[in-house]
Amino acid sequence: MNILFFLKPKSELAYINDYHTLRQALEIMEYHKYSSVPILNKEGKYVGSITEGDLLWSLKRWNLLNLKDAEDISVMKVERRLDYQCVTAKSKMEDLIGRAMEQNFVPVVDDEGHFIGMITRRDIIEYCYTRMKGGK
């Protein structure tokens, strides 16, 4: 099976650009109700991922209680616990499953590192569950 079967295209997803501020990152994640999102650079390449926890601990570390202050801080200054590992469209299903066991989503990039979408752990589990129940 081709892993692109599970792909949610970039056009349907929320992400943060590396030039966004801490406040913009908070607002994007709040609006879309995501706990983790990919970070892309200006060329659309995958840079890493950021979580609610990363943002929360940064607010605490910098003693920011006023969101106005978060408008002057680049999201790239936020210390990230870990960046989700990505796969390419040519990756094997085993690679995808291995990453999905450790991450909520798996970023998918093209051969040049441009972000093309993601595959969620939920979609993989849903597919397996449906197959297990005898569906297609």
Score class of each variant (00 low, 15 high):
F6P: 05
E43M: 10
Q103I: 11
D95G: 11
A100C: 11
R23D: 12
R122N: 08
Q85V: 08
M132R: 01
L55T: 00
P38A: 15
H32Y: 15
K60W: 09
L4K: 13
I73K: 03
E112L: 07
S49M: 04
S74L: 15
I73L: 09
F115V: 02
C86W: 15
L26I: 08
L40N: 05
P107Y: 02
T51M: 00
S91R: 06
F6L: 14
I125T: 10
W62Y: 04
K136C: 07
F115P: 01
S35E: 07
Y46W: 05
N66W: 04
S36W: 09
C86F: 03
L82M: 10
E94W: 15
D72Q: 07
E43G: 11
D18G: 08
N41T: 05
I28S: 11
N17P: 07
P38I: 12
L4F: 15
L96K: 09
F5D: 07
R61W: 01
T120Q: 01
R99V: 10
V109S: 11
D83E: 00
R99E: 15
M29Q: 03
N66K: 07
M118H: 09
K68S: 02
M101P: 02
V37K: 11
L64I: 14
F105N: 04
D83R: 01
S36V: 05
P107R: 09
R23Y: 09
C128H: 01
E52Q: 09
T88Y: 14
F6R: 04
H114V: 07
D54V: 05
D95H: 05
R99A: 10
E43C: 02
A25L: 07
S91M: 08
R61I: 03
E71Q: 13
G98R: 08
E126L: 08
I50C: 01
V106H: 02
L56N: 00
L7Q: 06
A89P: 14
S11Y: 04
V47A: 08
L82A: 14
I39Q: 09
M1R: 08
D110V: 06
I97P: 02
L40W: 06
Q24V: 04
F115G: 07
I28C: 12
P9H: 15
T120F: 02
Y34M: 12
R121M: 05
E126Q: 00
P38Q: 08
A14G: 14
I50T: 06
T51W: 02
K8G: 09
E94K: 13
I124R: 02
I124D: 03
L82V: 05
Q85M: 09
M1I: 09
C128S: 12
L4S: 15
R99K: 12
D18A: 12
T120Y: 00
E79K: 10
I50A: 01
V47G: 05
G48E: 10
K10C: 12
S35M: 11
I73Q: 02
L22C: 03
G44P: 10
I50M: 01
E27I: 15
S58R: 00
C128K: 07
N17E: 13
T21P: 13
V78I: 14
E112Y: 10
E30N: 06
N41D: 15
E79A: 12
E112C: 13
V108E: 08
